[in-house]
C-alpha cells in the first residue's frame, strides 16, 4: 500500500474537511486516518491516505489539492509517508 500524508493548515470555517474528503472520494483515494486540532480560529489537520487506486501522478494530486486549498482558504500538501517516519523515528 502506498501511504501518503496530507497536511492542511489555514483559517477554520464550515466545510473544510467535507470539501477535502469529497475530493478524495472523487479520486478513489481512501482515507486511513485523520487527526485535527483547532486553535484561535485556525485549523491544523493531517490525513493518512491510501493512493493505490488513484490514477494520477503526484503532480496531479498536488495540483488537485492546491485548487481544493484555494476553495477552502487553506494550504494543503501531500507527501510520501516515509519522509515522516525517517525524520521522526529511529
Amino acid at each position: 500500500m502506498s501511504k501518503t500524508i496530507v497536511t492542511l493548515v489555514g483559517k477554520d470555517r464550515v466545510g473544510i474537511i467535507a470539501t477535502v474528503c469529497n475530493f478524495f472520494a472523487e479520486n478513489n483515494i481512501n482515507i486511513l486516518d485523520l487527526k485535527q486540532t483547532t486553535s484561535q480560529g485556525y485549523i491544523n489537520m493531517m490525513m493518512i491516505v491510501d493512493t493505490d487506486l488513484y490514477e494520477g501522478s503526484v503532480e496531479n494530486l498536488n495540483k488537485g489539492l492546491e485548487s481544493v486549498g484555494a476553495q477552502v482558504g487553506c494550504i494543503i500538501k501531500a507527501q510520501h509517508e516515509e519522509i515522516f517516519d525517517m525524520m521522526h523515528r529511529i
Binding site: I5, T7, V9, D33, N44, M46, I48, I75, H88
Partner: peptide
C-alpha cells in the same frame, strides 16, 4: 504512526 505535531514540524521546516 506519525503524530500531528511531527507532521507539521516537517511541513514547517520545508515551508518556513
Amino acid at each position: 504512526m506519525v503524530e500531528l505535531d511531527e507532521a507539521f514540524e516537517t511541513v514547517n521546516m520545508v515551508s518556513h
